[in-house]
Write a protein that binds this DNA or RNA. Structure first.
Lengths: 234, 234, 234, 234
DNA sequence: GATGAATGAGCCTTCATTCAT
DNA sequence: CATGAATGAAGGCTCATTCAT
């Protein structure tokens, strides 16, 4: 009987593991855009545009940015830019997508199901703050413009951002299963605590460069949040 | 000796009480000042403009809003609007200020120093989520546009928003003095937890109207955060 | 009994007369746009724009015309032009409408039902060629750009141009009733002959300034067409 | 003397016959010449381009058509199109030319001088309406865009279109010689009647698909016009 | 011969703001 | 106080055309 229970638990674990892998694979896949350009020159130009746009958007804000500036920054003509992106909006969506895809891929590779949910959560928060630090311009765009924006409504991008929260939801469920998150706690509330706290220090850093060491602060906060939840669960 | 200690504590308490009152008074005064002038202008028209601007800003976003639309919404001509506000920017700042001032004033009146810091913190978070619910359009503006915006930089408004965090900082210090917040904890981190979590449920509500009952959710989250901190403090 | 018949004919005539008046009144009314501008300056500017647009359109053709040129020709700024017409297309439609309305009004006043259908038809063709001569730039636009254009499809303007043919249809019916148009002749064919012939000399004149005296040529052609039809009717 | 007269008439007739043949030959040759070159290029691709251009021009109108669309419609790249036609204008002229040449050639072969001028005129009008019906897209282009257009001025194409009228002029002169067209009638007027009427039913058909059977309507109208002229000539 | 890539030259349109009445 | 009218200053986007491979 004990064996049965263990087997059952084992099955559950395998099932969850499969779901976890599937979740991340799907997220990575959805956020990864197929680049259809073939020639090398073309691919190089596309990268130049992306980099330039990121710089300009982060500097001036999306709505104040002029595509002429982006093109100039990329060292190409305005019309060439339109060969790659059919509108300013189009470009403004591509930028965050690009990095989101990279982040998700990185995390997927770093967080196998062999780690506990607790470990995976801490890793998730740590990696996301660290990724923000490493790509500050992109983070500025995502956390201060895109994420809060009403205007992302019902776009592909919106779903990709929601994926970020979806991962945490999944981990909270696992955390409850593992017993270190109080089962009677509302998931939305817990999520708000985790995501809100994590984003808040990123935003504070983006605006004031405080704390100095974002990576360390992110890791510490992640650990602290998890401990608080553990305490709460008793 | 006990008397001395008590007296000292009493003094500290009085001192802190005085500082608390002064802090709130200053915050209220600063945020109110701007709004109080212009008594020569028609009060009614001014209110119409403010309401119209709020609606339009919340609907279209600040940068996409046109003052012609605001004027139309207010039922006046564009040129008349300029008699009241000398620029679009001017108007865009006035809106959040107006409500911030109201919120601060409300809170000041509701949170005398006779309440413990713990009570005042819970009240602060509860009232802010409730105020957001009551003024959803304004909240949309503040939480999704103004607050995260890079462009508020170094303006009067920026300071008024910082005041929001300042209050929490103050309360955290008091909480440490009262002993229910772990003294060795970094204030920034604790603030991130409190502000981030609180804002997060407001933002979630603004975007998805989840949770249904924001007031209740806000109150519960506030209580939960405080309990977590208490546990942590041992 | 004879009296009865006469009365009946009289009634028919009155009925047709009423229909004729109603037709023309409706045509004039439909083509006359209400100008809502009140101030004098505004009305003057509108007239300047209309004149300028006519000149530029006739000179460069509608699709090649730049509204900047039209504004310059009108002595106003480009943006002012947009205060009056919300797009280039809008303006391109207003021009022909304006003159069509004038022509229809002129003809209505000159062609009471006391004239025979024959007289009214000759007058119609004569006046339309003469109007074209008098407003050559407008005629260039109407006969060489608007009328044949595929793009007028299903617009208000299209209907107003169809009105031109509608009048002729009506007169052909009357002509048959009066007996000078063969009753067994297909109306479309007869219309093609009348409208086609009439337009053709206008077009030829517009392109080559031949014949020299369009008014005279128009009158002669009109008379000739009617005589041909009379002969045919025997 | 009779013989002399007859001989003279015979001579005249021969002379006119020679002129007629020369006229048509020249017209066919002039319109064909341009089309005959470029044998080095792929005949197939050229035809694809021509067909595609015709479709796109007829659909969108010349000025609104984009050569990128034409290339796409032809299934080739834009740059390849430029290997065949050095500009959009070039292409826009080639299209009508191509079919005009075909029509003129067809008519020449169908209208020998053994037919009377009356027969040749009826045939001319009948064939031209029928050709329009058979090549509706081309007709749309020619009758609604090219022919009335101011912009054809002084080009090769202009002359080819004028050829259309030239044939009618010639036939009117013959008709006067044959006695069935009143000698005292102004040729321009008569031409306007013939060309205008004929074109008008084509245009009406192009715009409204009325009459249903254009070929029949064209033939009937041609016959009717000729009869009217005969009556007039007494 | 075919084409992917790049671009210059324009043009339309928007909108915050001013000013005369 | 109110507003009708006017505008300067931009900025997004299009498209015919060229060129290197």
């Amino acid at each position: 009987m004990t064996a049965n229970i263990e087997t059952s638990a084992q099955n559950d674990k395998n099932l969850l593991g499969k779901q976890w892998t599937e979740l991340l694979d799907r997220i990575v896949e959805n956020s990864t855009r197929e680049t259809e350009r073939k020639q090398d020159r073309s691919r190089r130009t596309e990268r130049q545009i992306l980099n330039a746009a990121l710089r300009v958007f982060a500097r001036d804000g999306i709505s104040r940015s002029r595509i002429a500036d982006i093109a100039a920054e990329a060292g190409i003509s305005t019309s060439t830019l339109y060969e790659y992106y059919k509108s300013k909006e189009d470009l403004a969506y591509e930028i965050p997508m690009h990095h989101l895809a990279e982040f998700y891929a990185k995390y997927r590779d770093a967080a196998p199901y062999t780690l506990s949910a607790r470990e995976r959560l801490v890793l998730y928060l740590t990696m996301s703050t660290d990724y923000a630090r490493e790509h500050a311009e992109w983070a500025r765009l995502l956390y201060l413009e895109i994420w809060p924006s009403v205007f992302v409504s019902e776009t592909e991008l919106r779903h990709r951002i929601n994926d970020f929260v979806r991962v945490i939801h999944f981990l909270i469920d696992e955390g409850k299963a593992e017993g270190w998150i109080a089962a009677d706690r509302n998931n939305y509330e817990t999520t708000a605590l985790i995501v809100g706290g994590s984003n808040q220090i990123i935003i504070t850093w983006l605006l004031y460069r405080t704390p100095k060491n974002l990576t360390k602060a992110g890791a510490e906060l992640a650990e602290r949040i998890v401990r608080l939840l553990e305490m709460e669960a008793g």
